[in-house]
């Protein structure tokens, strides 16, 4: 299978004042890969994902997405088709019905008039219901999102991603606030969907176990630098112990 490059980071740096979040980070992710980003708190995982989602400008370096610089996806529509993001469940609008939160994935495609109309009569309803069906929530289409449990809300977020249908899915701690059973359920669903839709998946995770279980490749960050980047089969316990050790300067 020919490996097509999807994301290429070239010496990306980012600092907040004097605190360095990312220093000269480079790696390449191929199309269809499922990559877990792990590392201790404050290693720069979220900064990296935010830069990839172009919600945060990088101080230095360049990012190529599908062969083109990230800046070339400046209009919201082409960016939404390329990159979708899911975070913790607090990113849904709690007052809206589930279907509107799912259909928010279509907003980049819709005219203003259509999005106003949709709040009264949901547009593209079939697509939203199909997506909710795939995440197992077809019975909660018109319920208020705030009445759903944390795990269900995260499934709604996945349904929104299905409707948005981006080529790259960025997931920032998608299961951080869920119990282990719900977390595994969501990760299983996320990786399955990404595989079915042939999407590239980059997820930051707190838990190494989930990273090893559900992903094919692990990128470890420490103090804003690449600590290791290898397939799951080559990740050893000693490396992990070193990654999470509290002495910051024991390696490299």
């Amino acid at each position: 299978m020919a490996q097509e490059t999807m994301i290429e980071l070239n010496r990306i740096s980012k600092h907040y004042g004097r605190k360095i979040a990312l220093s000269s980070l480079s790696f390449v992710i191929n199309k269809g890969e499922h990559v877990a980003v792990i590392g201790p708190s404050g290693a720069g995982k979220t900064s990296m994902l935010n830069i990839l989602a172009s919600m945060l400008p990088a101080d230095d370096g360049e990012i190529l997405v599908d062969g083109k610089p990230l800046d070339s996806y400046c209009d919201r529509k082409s960016r939404a088709q390329k990159i979708g993001m899911v975070r913790q469940q607090f990113d849904l609008v709690p007052q809206l019905a589930v279907i509107h939160n799912v259909l928010a994935g279509r907003l980049s495609d819709w005219s203003l008039w259509k999005s106003v109309l949709s709040l009264l009569i949901p547009q593209d309803k079939g697509r939203a219901i199909e997506a909710l069906d795939r995440v197992g929530l077809s019975d909660k289409v018109f319920e208020r999102t705030s009445s759903l449990s944390g795990g269900e809300q995260q499934r709604v977020a996945l349904a929104r991603l299905l409707v948005q249908d981006p080529e790259i899915i960025l997931a920032d701690e998608p299961v951080a606030s869920l119990d282990p059973a719900r977390a595994e359920d969501i990760l299983k669903m996320l990786t399955r969907i990404a595989a079915e839709e042939n999407q590239t998946l980059v997820a930051s995770l707190h838990s190494v176990d989930y990273a090893l279980k559900y992903f094919s490749r692990v990128i470890a960050l420490k103090d804003g630098k690449l600590f290791f980047d290898r397939p799951v089969s080559e990740v050893s316990d000693t490396l992990l112990a070193e990654l999470y050790s509290l002495e910051g300067n024991s390696q490299k």
Partner: peptide, 30 residues
């Protein structure tokens, strides 16, 4: 109002007016 849903709408490609309609108004109307 909570800015997290709004950020996510922006990431999903919503325009400024759409963000107001879907993210801000439902939260503040009551």
């Amino acid at each position: 109002s909570d800015s997290r849903p709004v950020r996510n709408l922006a990431a999903a490609g919503a325009s400024k007016t759409q963000i107001l309609l879907y993210g801000v108004l439902p939260a503040v109307l009551p």
